[in-house]
């Protein structure tokens, strides 16, 4: 399935914004973040390789979610938020001014902690909403909806109720609808901010399955508080920690089995074994 931009407003004048399709690697370099002048994240450098699942773990308030939101320029929506550093999507710095915020976000999708389907739209329209927003036309909408919902593991449950409102689904279904919605624009990276924390164990399992299924096509970065989940779904793991009155930093990052099996830092070891946090 190919997406074609029909509206010239979507093309950026100077540089072609979207180099290629398919999963893309993401590299953050020396990322710092402030809220109202207070430094909350300092010098975070992390590579999130193409077609892998990267889990960001760490106790509450250590800057994981802030970091995640920096990766697709959602951070700047918060009044008083500032940042420094760079984030490269397959070598293109998303903060360098070549990509607009809207283009960046279309390439780097996001799923939120709380399911947030658009309540005024049907399930069908919810899936297509990203395309509608970007004025992208697609040859076969029904097929795209089916493919997206299938990837998100929701198709069988909703195929006969496409015209119902998104809000009529259960919480777990809503979250999978949000994943389908994010996948429908064919993002190259998908960011997930504790996508399962508001859900029951069954729904959580479904979503973990979905993550495993889509990891080939899209690079996944997931924030989670659940150690087992991080272990189950991720290939790479980064442990964030903020000491008292200090900004959050990455303590250790590496392949998941290393982080959980033989971490080099004592604090990582303590955290992944549930001794604090």
């Amino acid at each position: 399935m190919t997406l074609t931009a029909t509206n010239d407003r979507n093309t950026v004048s100077d540089v072609q914004p979207t180099p290629g399709t398919g999963a893309a690697g993401l590299v953050a370099r020396e990322v710092c973040a402030w809220f109202s002048g207070r430094l909350v994240l300092e010098g975070v450098t992390l590579a999130m390789p193409r077609s892998t699942v990267t889990a960001l773990i760490g106790p509450s308030g250590c800057g994981k979610s802030t970091f995640l939101r920096i990766l697709n320029r959602m951070h700047e929506l918060v009044p008083g938020a500032q940042l420094a550093g760079s984030v490269e999507l397959d070598g293109t710095d998303i903060y360098a001014g070549r990509l607009r915020a809207t283009d960046t976000r279309r390439n780097i999708g996001m799923v939120f902690q709380k399911p947030n389907p658009f309540p005024a739209m049907s399930i069908y329209d919810n899936v297509l909403s990203g395309l509608k927003f970007s004025r992208i036309s697609v040859s076969d909408r029904d097929a795209l909806v089916e493919v997206s919902l299938t990837k998100a593991g929701l198709w069988n449950e909703v195929k006969n109720r496409m015209r119902e409102l998104g809000g009529a689904l259960s919480g777990g279904q809503q979250q999978r609808l949000c994943i389908a919605r994010a996948l429908a624009v064919e993002p190259r990276v998908l960011l997930m901010d504790e996508p399962c924390s508001a859900l029951d164990p069954t729904s959580t399992a479904r979503i973990e399955q979905t993550i495993a299924d889509i990891a080939d096509e899209v690079t996944v970065v997931i924030v989670t508080h659940n150690m087992q989940q991080a272990q189950r779904v991720s290939d790479v793991c980064a442990f964030f920690l903020a000491a008292e009155n200090e900004p959050g930093r990455i303590i250790e990052a590496g392949p998941t089995d290393v982080i959980f099996g033989s971490p080099t830092d004592e604090r990582t070891s303590d955290y992944v074994h549930g001794r604090f946090g």
């Binding site: 697709n72 809207t102 283009d103 947030n116």
Partner: peptide, 15 residues
């Protein structure tokens, strides 16, 4: 959250 979701899909503010 709805505004965030929309913006995260690459929608413009007007959209």
């Amino acid at each position: 959250g709805l505004r965030e979701a929309s913006l995260a899909l690459g929608a413009s503010e007007f959209r």
